[in-house]
């Protein structure tokens, strides 16, 4: 009796642990959406970092930025490529949203796909959304 119980238990455990794989087998997976470059961002071509670097490291870059602005009152960021940016998510022409005008297509599409919900927007506002 003990042996059977243990084996049944183990089988259930293994099935449960692998549940994400079962779930993926019965559902279809969409490819990750690409952030869309629109308007100014499309023309500009040059961002703070290289594309791949940016993809991987934008959270830590933003973290660095906020410390720099709030704690050291440094607000200008001259990147390795020589361009100068305002270290801000949404304030001013050369802030993130100043160039990437469409937050929904630039930020949210990926974040929604990856199911991350950065708390930036609890406080920072997208100027477009206010009006």
């Amino acid at each position: 009796m003990n042996k059977n119980m243990i084996i049944t238990g183990l089988v259930i455990f293994v099935l449960a642990v692998l549940s994400p794989f079962w779930f993926n087998m019965i559902t279809t997976t969409e490819a990750a959406p690409k952030p869309e470059l629109l308007g100014k961002a499309k023309e500009e071509k040059k961002c703070v970092l290289e594309k791949y670097d940016m993809r991987a490291n934008h959270p830590s870059l933003l973290d660095e930025w906020r410390d720099s602005v709030v704690r050291n009152s440094d607000r200008q960021y001259t990147a390795a490529n020589g361009h100068t940016f305002g270290m801000s998510l949404s304030t001013g022409e050369n802030s993130c949203l100043g160039c990437h005008e469409d937050k929904a297509k630039f930020c949210d599409s990926c974040h929604t796909y990856a199911s991350v919900d950065p708390y930036c927007w609890e406080c920072h506002t997208n100027p477009k959304e206010i009006k």
Binding site: V48, L49, N57, N72, S73, Y77, T78, A79, A80, M87
Partner: peptide, 14 residues
């Protein structure tokens, strides 16, 4: 993790 891109950047005041 410190990407090579951020190491060369310069921060400053307006």
């Amino acid at each position: 993790s410190d990407s090579p891109g951020t190491a060369l950047a310069v921060k400053g005041k307006n």
